[in-house]
Amino acid sequence: MGGLLELNGVTKRFGGIVAVKELSIKVNEGELVGLIGPNGAGKTTVFNLITGLYPVDEGRIIFNGEEITPLKSYEIIRKGVARTFQNLRLFPRATALENVMTACQNHLRYSFLEACLHMGRWRRYESAIKDESMYYLEKMGLKERAFQRAGTLPYGHQRRLEIARALALKPKLLLLDEPAAGMNPEEVAELSELIVDIHREFKLTTMVIEHHMDLVVGVCPHVICMNFGEKIAEGTPNEVMNHPEVLRAYLGEEV
């Protein structure tokens, strides 16, 4: 069976720098994949290529049996990809609830006329959007924070709010870009549990970029390691952690 997401020989150059070099990745449906690598390895670039923020120079990206390489970001998102960002991109002035509602309305649409006149589906869908958003906030333990402005939430909560917002898109594939960045060990442990929970409960194919090795090793059965834009190892966490190339990338020569 084909994977949910396939990258075939994807290359991305920025001027003379090759950020991603002939990368081929296959993610099967229902998998939880960790993407690791030293700083500047090109991990976030891979996410940016998948979500259409950068045009792909060479190669093809196939999602759910369809080529998505030439599509615009919003079209790719509508096909069922959701992501979070390394440095948060919430709407800071809107409340936590409004942040999630903004994502929810993608599958609960009503017409412009209904919006102008507050008639027809408006009432039904607005309350459905609100209920659904509250459900995702509750899942991420943010129910009490629903009416607080997103920008005033503690950092860890903002991270979880971004995941809640991504889940509200009802994606088939969830891309988490360093969800544990800036968290203390307890918060990381909590987050690992949460990621496993989400993955199980929503049967969601998930890809995680992470620097916290304990998170990746504890959570992801399938790990890919990148360095200088290339895939250098792939397999179970143990296989990857003991791979000589990976050790060299992280610790240098002479191990």
Partner: peptide, 18 residues
């Protein structure tokens, strides 16, 4: 209204919400 505000606050995040 929410879509307009999303475009105002962060158009990149807005396009990545579809």
């Amino acid at each position: 209204g929410r879509a307009f505000k999303a475009c105002r606050d962060d158009y990149l995040a807005a396009s990545l919400l579809g």
